[in-house]
Design a protein around this nucleic acid. Structure first.
Length: 377
DNA sequence: TTCATTTGACCCTG
DNA sequence: CAGGGTCAAATGAA
């Protein structure tokens, strides 16, 4: 708890510092003939920083409320920085490890540091699948929730046992709109899927109607699962591409009912979400930035956060696909998502090095050359 | 036979 | 004590 508070404080301070820092740089930039893109980028950074800071402040006002699945895809990251600095606390992993070690079959609820991504997805076509998020999930429970009309489904990574991957997710059908699903991801993928994931985010559609992959599945919370060689990473990556391409055709991120704050910007990731986002976008963001203003703003806003714990990613040669945590908001237009995803999949095979950004909070180099020509290419 | 889903029971947290 | 998260036996599909 204390860690969480400290983490939020640090994040808040970092965001404010970042905003100021970028504003200063922008001021300098205004004297030079840099491109408009560069300036827009910095403006995005500034806005993002202040928005994140404000969100932290607001969440402190009503901490308890932020925990609930709200119509808006927002809640502050539950994952405090661990003692070693990783946004995805090692305590988190330790918690699961302890559970495993202490007792073979403990039903103890996972508590402690949480790593939550909350997103909302809706099925454009209403009742059609399949939609996946690039990961293989196994349903391990379903529960009627008091405050919700629809049951909540619980999934864990298929490779939990084989690869000790403790990522889980919860899928809750929206009360207001049954075609919308609130998906909460917990933990991080440590399996090979995580290393191969190519999706920009992890929405997963759960549907009552059609079950193309698993006809035997019934009723709620169907996760199309197609068994495949778990050791074949290439196959997995390709399968992820195909499935996500599928997904892109039928899903969109829900943009309705999002608060004004969320809608005010095209795309916002709180600081801790970056690691996750980055991992998912490892191969496509850089290569598409130049041609896609939307992606540019996305990348600008969230990849260029020099004062957040993740911002040091840019000084690292690699970029870890596994480390997603926190949450993010995705008030995107419906037309944006398929574009992003298709772009994503289309460049997956590009010879872009496998970035692996550590999540350790390193002091940001304020002199990082964000405007270095070719930085994004 | 293997593996995923279903579902009731268990148990922890607030 | 209620609600929610997880377990694991039963079941079914491939």
């Amino acid at each position: 708890m204390e860690n969480e508070c400290n983490w939020e404080q640090n994040t808040l301070i970092n965001e404010l510092i970042q905003g100021m820092d970028v504003a200063k740089r922008l001021k300098e930039e205004l004297r030079t003939p840099y491109s408009i893109d560069t300036r827009e980028l910095q403006m995005q950074m500034i806005l993002s920083s202040y928005e994140k800071a404000l969100r932290i402040l607001r969440s402190n006002e009503s901490t308890s409320k932020s925990q609930t699945v709200s119509p808006v895809i927002t809640s502050l990251p539950q994952s405090p920085v661990s003692t070693n600095g990783s946004p995805l606390s090692e305590d988190f992993d330790a918690t699961f490890q302890d559970r495993k070690d202490v007792k073979n079959k403990s039903k103890k609820r996972k508590v402690g540091p949480k790593c939550i991504d909350q997103i909302r997805v809706s099925c454009e076509s209403g009742l059609e699948g399949p939609h996946e998020d690039g990961f293989n999930w196994r349903k391990y429970g379903q529960k009627d929730i008091l405050s919700a009309k629809h049951p909540r489904s619980y999934y864990r990574c298929t490779f939990r046992n084989t690869q000790n991957c403790w990522a889980t997710k919860q899928v809750q059908r929206s009360d207001e709109d049954p075609t919308i699903f609130d998906i909460t991801y917990r933990g991080k993928h440590t399996c090979s899927q995580g290393n191969n994931a190519i999706v920009p985010y992890k929405p997963q559609e759960i549907n009552n109607a059609i079950v193309p992959y698993k006809p035997q599945a019934t009723n709620n919370a169907i996760v199309p699962y197609k068994p495949h060689n778990q050791n074949n990473d290439i196959h997995q990556a390709r399968q992820s591409q195909e499935r996500f391409s599928n997904f892109s055709n039928t899903l969109n991120v829900q943009t309705e009912n999002l608060g004004n704050q969320e809608m005010a910007r095209p795309f916002t990731f709180p600081s801790t979400s970056f690691g996750y986002t980055a991992q998912e976008n490892q191969s496509w963001v850089p290569s598409t930035l130049e041609n896609d203003s939307f992606l540019s703003s996305l990348f600008q806003t969230h990849l260029l956060s020099p004062t957040t714990p993740e911002s040091n990613y840019f000084s690292s040669p690699t970029f870890n696909m596994n480390d997603f945590d926190g949450f993010y908001s995705m008030p995107l237009s419906e037309s944006d998502i398929p574009d992003i995803i298709s772009t994503n999949t289309s460049v997956t095979n590009s010879p872009i090095p496998n970035f692996n950004f550590p999540l350790d909070p390193v002091e940001i180099d304020p002199n990082f050359p964000f405007n270095t020509p070719g930085f994004f290419s």
